[in-house]
Structures are given as structure tokens and as C-alpha cells.
Design a binder for these strands. Structure first.
Length: 500
RNA sequence: GCCUCAGUAGCUCAGCCGGUUAGAGCGGCGGACUGUUAAUCCGUAGGUCCUAGGUUCAAGUCCUAGCUGAGGCGCCA
């Protein structure tokens, strides 16, 4: 509700500052019949040489422009084509047609930018996501993508609002990092060295002392370690920034460049962490339900249309909006890793040998196992905690031996699993005991000197703390119901692909 | 990185067991109509069948290699 107020305030000042045009969202929301308005945008359709559906990005809805064609130059009307850019001044009237309540009877039409339909790649019809991905400079003009990117903005805004309202501080973690021990996969090297003439040390290795920063540097794979510095000074912080993984991942839920939200909180244990993540994720979904109903309704309908010709088992179990409401209205299931393994081994699927990978204590849960837990067994989001220490990162806090009746050492890690997406969040309570952490660092073979500052956080004024990382695009993917993560980021970067 | 599938008109696709001049819908263009909702109706143009080899009397169709894209798995958020 609060967001609507902000939108209105913005719209009111919009009238004063931008006297040249009014947003279509504003016209549709609070304009009076008979009032003269000027709107500008891109043509979505021009029917019967009389009705134009005008779109300007401000709303999922279009504004119908009625053109009395005898009054306009034929050559101008011919240029009102799909995705041409025009400005229209006219009076608002009640619509006689069924599709809309109000419309603008055009008095003046200005052609800002013609679009030759013979050369323009997009058409007013269904186009595949793969095709539109290749036209990323135009795809945001479509219904689907404009809705996705309005919602993407809404989620980003809600993230800042959620944390700000609760006393968290937005911490900017570095994008270029000199630390090679973050333990989150392959990294992109950052260098100004001449790749054709690399400086070498006496032993023949590349001499990074000659590089810009005087050492080897990479793009960040996580802001967590720096987030911990913030938490142990400001109490409650979060990072929200671009994150880079040079993994050769070819899936519908991986990007080489994505955005990640990483809250980090002092005096937090794994329970607090789970409570935070559940409340936070529900807040984001509720925010979109409350503020982007038109966009969600469009995406919901789009999915229904796409699924019309699909087999029942390939369809979503629930329509998009119902799914979102269900997640908001129900508790997430919380289980331990040890329980998860037991459930999997007791399952019909395991006994009938339907799993490709054997669920076994000590091995990581495979995608098929996570999907079984979330989609078949619990049928709702699941938080799995206390994983075997051997398969998790060095910084996660070691549990007391025998926690959950586990047969081996576990760490206070947690993963949040969502239907259709899998892991949206990975987090943990951090190891705050200096001696235990040092042992782990050594056991992982990480050079101590790389992490001197991280270890000193434990040596001087340390405390229990916890945090998690939310994959922003994965959350956008879930909320919009899109099928591929490349379609919820404006310009996707994936292996072999960095166009635009 | 591994596995699978696909590539035919601007787009989405059909093209059977290899057989004459490669088709449809949408879109474009020309016209008609004019309160439409992806408007409708009539007409019309539009093709290096991904590329390179090969098999064959004959290849869009079969074989080999490559390129591109998609999906699944792994890695993870």
C-alpha cells in the first residue's frame, strides 16, 4: 500500500516537472473524463485504422487511442505501426468498446520514431524466448518482458525497504577482490597486463606484482567475507551487488553475472537465520502480490496459454498467483540433512530405484533429491539445515558431535529449496571460534595469509553471527514464473554469450 | 564439462519409406471494410532447406564432421 502512495506522489510531481506528457499508469489510475492529456509511447497495435493500443512502460496496461482517421494525414496514419513511437494529445472519454474503461480521442499525433515493419524483427504475435533473447535491445517492449522487468525492479526495491525498515545497513562489498579463498567456485581474472607479453618471474610464473593492483585480482564471487566485517561493526548489514562465477554452467538457473543479496547479522545463530530468511522471502512475494497485480495477472495468463497444449504432468501444479499466495500463507518446512536422507531412503522412488543418484549420508543432495523433497513430499518450500561438514565451506560453524543423531560431523548450514527452482538461498552460522576456524582453513588447504583479516575478526571482538546469500534472479524467476533465468535479467551473461 | 534434441520463408512450424515445380498459419505489401481488442475479408510477393564433405540415378529427407541454439545433469545462488 505504501508503495502505491509513493507512486502517486511521483506521479503528481511528474505533472509539474514533466509537463510534456503523463504516464499511462497515471492516466489510467486517476484521470477524469473530458480532461485533456498528452501521452507518449510505443504502439502495440493499430486496428481498423482507428484504434491504437499505446504502451509507455509505466503500466502492464495499454491506453486505447481513438483516431478519427478522416481528420489525419493518410501518410501519418500509415506510420502508426507496431512499436512505432508516437505522442498523442486528446481528451479522455468513456470507451464504447469492451476491452477498456477509458480511451483518448486523438486531437494531435506526433511521430517520434517510425518503425518500418518490413525491417523490424518483432511482430505482434507469439515469439519464442530464444528469439527474443537475440533481440535483447527490443524485447523489453513486449508485454512479457516489460512485466518481468517492472517486477524485477519491485523486488529490488522491496529488498532495500525490508532491510532498511529493520535497521540493516546496505554495505557495498568490493567487486574486484584480491582474495583467492572465498570458496565459491571459478573466478574471472581482472588484469591490465598485456596478455601477449606477460611479465614473468625468475621461476617463469606470471608476475602479478607488475599488474595494476600489484597482485592477482578477480571479480567477486561473494560479498560474504566482507559482509562479516560489516556485521561485526554495524551489527546488521546486507550486500546487494553483482556477483561473478566463471563456471561453465549451462542451465536455466545459472548466470556468469548475477546479483546476490547477502545479509550478515551479529549475535545471530542458525535458528535466527532461518527465521529471517523465511520472513524476508515471504515479504518480497507479498510485496509483488500487493503492488504488481496487473503484471502478475498478465504473466499468469501467459503461462496458462502456454500450458494449454501441454500434458498435465508438464504443467505447473498451481497457477502462478496461487503458488505465490500459497508460499506466503504457509510455513516453510524445516528439516535436517540427516532427516532428509532418511526420508529419501524411505521413499517409494528410492525403493523402486528411480533415483539416478543414491541418497547417502555424507553426499550432497542432488537436484532430483531436492525436487522430490520440495515438489513430491512436502509440496512447499523446504529449509534443509546441518549438512555434513565435509561437503560444505570452511567458514561454516561446526556443530556439537551427534547433533540430530548424525553419524558424522555437521555444520550449521542451511539451504532454502523452492519448487521448480531448487536452491534460492544458501547460508550458515559462521565459525566464530578462532582455533576451530584456523583448523578448518588448514584442513581445506587455504593459505592462512590470504585470510589474515578474516581470522583476525575472530581474534579481536568476535561473536556468533550468521547470514545467507539469496540469488536475486532465482527469486525473480520464481515470482514471475518464467522458465529461464536468462529472461529475468536484462542482459544475460552465460558461457559463450555476452552480447549487448 | 557430460548427455539428448533441434536448425526449412521475416516469425512459428509441417514436409510420410529418399522421387517431379518445397507448403501452411502469422507477419509484410496492394485493396476492401470501419467501434476494434493478436480486428476481419480478398489478392500478392517472399527460400543458399545451418555449413562443408560423402552415399545415391536422385538428398530438405540417409551418413560424417563442424557451427549455432535449446533442454537435462554436474557445479552453485
Amino acid at each position: 500500500m505504501c508503495f502505491l502512495k509513493i507512486r502517486r506522489t511521483f506521479a503528481a510531481s511528474n505533472d509539474e516537472i514533466m509537463i510534456r506528457r503523463t504516464d499511462i499508469a497515471t492516466v489510467l489510475a486517476n484521470s477524469d473524463i473530458g480532461q485533456e492529456v498528452t501521452v507518449m509511447g510505443w504502439v502495440r497495435a493499430f486496428r481498423s485504422n482507428r484504434f491504437s493500443a499505446l504502451y509507455d512502460g509505466s503500466s502492464a496496461k495499454t491506453l486505447q487511442i481513438v483516431v478519427d482517421f478522416e481528420r489525419f494525414d493518410e501518410n501519418l496514419l500509415k506510420k502508426i505501426t507496431f512499436h512505432a513511437c508516437i505522442g498523442v494529445t486528446g481528451r479522455l472519454q468513456e470507451s464504447q468498446g469492451a476491452g477498456q474503461a477509458i480511451e483518448v480521442l486523438a486531437d494531435k499525433i506526433e511521430l517520434w520514431g517510425a518503425t518500418d515493419p518490413e525491417q523490424y524483427p518483432l511482430q505482434p504475435k507469439f515469439q519464442t524466448m530464444e528469439f527474443l533473447r537475440e533481440k535483447a535491445h527490443f524485447r523489453m517492449r513486449t508485454n512479457t518482458f516489460s512485466s518481468v522487468f517492472r517486477i524485477r525492479h519491485g523486488i529490488a526495491y522491496a529488498i532495500h525497504k525490508y532491510f532498511h525498515d529493520r535497521g540493516y545497513f546496505y554495505l557495498h562489498a568490493p567487486i574486484i577482490t584480491g582474495s583467492d579463498a572465498e570458496g565459491a567456485g571459478e573466478m574471472f581474472r581482472v588484469t591490465t597486463l598485456d596478455l601477449d607479453h606477460l611479465p614473468r618471474t625468475e621461476s617463469g610464473e606470471v608476475d602479478f606484482e607488475a599488474d595494476f593492483f600489484g597482485k592477482a585480482t578477480n571479480l567477486t564471487v561473494s560479498g560474504q567475507l566482507q559482509g562479516e566485517i560489516g556485521a561485526l561493526a554495524l551489527g546488521k548489514v546486507y550486500t546487494f551487488g553483482p556477483t561473478f562465477r566463471a563456471e561453465n554452467s549451462n542451465t536455466t538457473r545459472h548466470l556468469a553475472e548475477f546479483w546476490m543479496i547477502e545479509p550478515e547479522v551479529a549475535f545471530f545463530d542458525i535458528e535466527d537465520n532461518m527465521n529471517l530468511v523465511e520472513d524476508f522471502l515471504k515479504y518480497l512475494i507479498r510485496f509483488v502480490l500487493d503492488n504488481y497485480a496487473d503484471d502478475l495477472a498478465f504473466l499468469d495468463q501467459r503461462i496458462a496459454d502456454l500450458e494449454k497444449n501441454m500434458k498435465t504432468e508438464d504443467r505447473r501444479p498451481m497457477p502462478l498467483v496461487d503458488t505465490l499466495r500459497f508460499v506466503v500463507d504457509n510455513e516453510f518446512e524445516r528439516i535436517t540433512y540427516t532427516e532428509a536422507i532418511r526420508l529419501l531412503r524411505d521413499s517409494k522412488e528410492f525403493k523402486k530405484d528411480r533415483f539416478e543418484f543414491t541418497p547417502e549420508w555424507g553426499k550432497d543432495l542432488q537436484a532430483e533429491h531436492e525436487r522430490w523433497l520440495v515438489e513430491k513430499h512436502f509440496k512447499k518450500p523446504v529449509i534443509v539445515r546441518n549438512y555434513p561438514a565435509a561437503i560444505k565451506a570452511f567458514y561454516m560453524r561446526i556443530n556439537e558431535p551427534g547433533t540430530d543423531g548424525a553419524p558424522g560431523d555437521t555444520v550449521a548450514a542451511m539451504d532454502v529449496l523452492f519448487p521448480g527452482i531448487g536452491e534460492v538461498v544458501g547460508g550458515s552460522q559462521r565459525e566464530e571460534r578462532h582455533d576451530v576456524l584456523l583448523e578448518r582453513v588448514k584442513a581445506f588447504g587455504i593459505p592462512e595469509e590470504e585470510l589474515w583479516w578474516y581470522l583476525e575478526l575472530r581474534k579481536f571482538g568476535g561473536c556468533p553471527h550468521a547470514g545467507f546469500g539469496l540469488g536475486f534472479e532465482r527469486m525473480v524467476l520464481f515470482i514471475t514464473g518464467m522458465g529461464n533465468i536468462r529472461d529475468v535479467i536484462p542482459f544475460p551473461r552465460t558461457p559463450q554469450s555476452a552480447e549487448f
